[in-house]
């Protein structure tokens, strides 16, 4: 299968939907891959349990995604709230080489119960970092986007940068690029750690 299944979940207002839209824009508009995005609707998107899913078709010859919903096990799962973290089960994540990542945020989640049973888990206090380093929680999105870009590797860094330029206002572009860079670094360190462990 050449489908890449992504799910982001948290609560409304955390940027769950924005992050998913950045992912689909980088993959489809800039990378030229077929992709679909669906998101939580109505009350959920405004403070309730919020989620968004993206499916990216990695085969460039396929122009239409046959099943637009993301399927378990996911290639990439990002959980940003206690409630969504509690829902996660071990079989939600693919256990394969170069894929099957779970990212969670210790700022909002006390403990990830399934953390030890999944191979590629990265707990990173995105919201705390965003506030400490950049002064606002909104920069968490660019950090996460940086992490996603490196770990998934489904689109180029160029595509990611173009997407950021499209999404953020000019006045905060530099800070967002720094946040993206920070996310990239964290992701690279994580990949190196995995490599060492495997060796």
């Amino acid at each position: 299968m050449t489908r890449y299944e992504i799910r982001v979940s948290g609560f409304g207002g955390q940027g769950v939907i924005t992050l998913s839209k950045m992912i689909i824009m980088a993959s489809s508009i800039y990378e030229g891959l077929a992709a679909t995005q669906t998101e939580a609707y109505s009350a959920a998107a405004r403070g309730g349990k919020c989620w968004a899913e993206v499916v990216v078709e990695l085969d460039k010859n396929i122009e239409l995604i046959d099943y637009p919903k993301a399927l378990k096990p996911y290639d990439f799962l990002i959980v940003l709230s206690e409630e969504s973290a509690n829902d996660v089960k071990v079989d939600f994540i693919k256990d394969e080489e170069n894929t099957g990542f779970l990212i969670w945020d210790p700022t909002t989640i006390k403990k990830l119960k399934v953390g030890k049973k999944i191979n590629k888990v990265l707990g990173i206090p995105v919201q705390k970092l965003a506030v400490e380093k950049f002064g606002n929680i909104v920069f968490g999105n660019s950090i996460l986007f940086g992490i996603f870009t490196i770990l998934s590797g489904i689109f180029s860094e160029e595509s990611a940068l173009e997407t950021i330029k499209k999404f953020v206002p000019n006045s905060t572009l530099d800070k967002n690029l720094e946040a993206f860079e920070l996310g990239k670094q964290e992701a690279m360190n994580f990949l190196n750690k995995i490599k060492e462990e495997n060796n």
Partner: peptide, 9 residues
Amino acid sequence: AYLGHLHEV
């Protein structure tokens, strides 16, 4: 409802 809310290129 699904198609109306689906995002695609």
